[in-house]
Design a protein around this nucleic acid. Structure first.
Lengths: 224, 224
DNA sequence: AGATTTCAGCTTATTTTAAGCTTAATCCAT
DNA sequence: ATGGATTAAGCTTAAAATAAGCTGAAATCT
């Protein structure tokens, strides 16, 4: 079991390293966000323990970039503040769990065990809706024999729509889940992506369409 | 689903009202503890969102009095401080959940859903009256095999009429709930929408009609 | 280069407004 | 009281105004 610890307070970082050692976990310690990111990108860890407040890049930025690079290593974020906004931001950016300081080693270990277990779960490879198949690993949208690649945001938007099979998803919900709940993205950003997606749905010849409910949101529907 | 919001910061209160509106929840807003208590005592709400710091009576006093009056409506308390003592006090006095500001709408909604679920209530997807069905997710009005789309305001007006099955609803009430209590909409606006709705009721061939009570208001009635 | 954001012009749906109309209530002279 | 005149309330519509949403192209990131 390999754990990466990204924590700038040297005393705490060493204490964490010590705790890991006692469990016979192999721990690497780095003291800033940039190093954390480059180590994390190697994909060799089973769990990453990541402080939010870091010199250089903060924890949110690190986890976001890791996820953008498709690194799925479970991340446990640490923060001094018990701030819900922080928590939501962290989880939105792709963190898997969240713990406020101070904490006791038992709790840390329990959470790390839980996260590493989660790795063993089956990972869904694709989502379906109507005649569409969305490949979650390749970000490809397929319909029949045709297939087209989706960009990151196109992919995320469609994934959320498909995940809510047929239910209405508001622009606000899409903004907070794709752009981040603290972002300043405007409605038009969503509109633009909806437009891109409609073009691609048409390209692959799907019967599925994104229907608009004015002042409410969007949802997937299958034309007959 | 009816939600009572008791919050003295007008901006926040309005934002909360807006969030509720987006979910098609019916929200009443009051700005002090005393009004909160008297509305809460009516027992007509599914959830009460109650700020702790309020002019007049504070949130703790309000929830305590509600419970003393045997009102069991779930209460979600809001506070600026993340103070464990506050939390304990609130829960001791009878609050059901507790959330610190700032928070995001997703979390608020999740907690409200949890509280209303606890009540045993299922979240309604449609409303019925006579031979009419109003789809709350699609804003569609159905009668038998016919169906027609309602615009946002048409939908809101009809929803309120249906929600008061058969009772009289005044123009003022419709204005304050559909246009907003601070709006300067005139009676004629309501009349226009009533007219639009009557046309649509006729179109779908419903036996339900909107009857006028001069100088009093409107109500739904079913023709025989 | 590819992804993303921004912006402007456009289309379409919703909302407001206002004028002319209908219906109901009130008043007043018979 | 009765019934016509007067007034107020409400109804209906078309047109105007506004708002929401769409899309292509340019600009900006990465």
């Amino acid at each position: 079991m390999k754990v990466l610890i990204v924590e700038d307070e040297v005393r705490l970082a060493d204490a964490l390293g010590q705790i890991m050692k006692e469990q016979h976990y192999q721990a690497d310690i780095v003291y800033n966000g940039t190093d954390g990111l480059s180590c994390g990108l190697s994909g060799e860890y089973d769990v990453i323990v990541l402080d939010v407040m870091l010199p250089g890049q903060n924890g949110f930025q690190v986890v976001k970039k890791l996820r953008e690079a498709r690194i799925q290593t479970p991340v446990l974020m640490l923060t001094a503040r018990d701030d819900i906004q922080d928590k939501v931001t962290g989880l939105d950016r792709g963190a898997d769990d969240y713990m406020t300081k101070p904490f006791i080693s038992e709790e840390l270990l329990a959470r790390i065990r839980a996260l590493s277990r989660r790795q063993g779960e089956v990972i869904v490879e694709e989502m379906k809706f109507g005649d569409l198949t969305l490949s979650l690993s390749a970000n490809d949208l397929c319909c029949g024999s045709k297939s087209i690649h989706l960009g990151y945001k196109e992919f995320e938007v469609l994934k959320i729509l498909m995940g809510n099979s047929g239910r209405i998803v508001s622009k606000e919900a899409l903004i907070s889940r794709v752009w981040g709940s603290d972002s300043d993205a405007e409605d038009n950003n969503v509109e633009a992506y909806i437009s891109f997606l409609r073009k691609k749905l048409h390209f692959v010849g799907s019967k599925v369409e994104i229907s608009t409910l004015r002042k409410v949101g969007y949802r997937l529907e299958e034309r007959l």
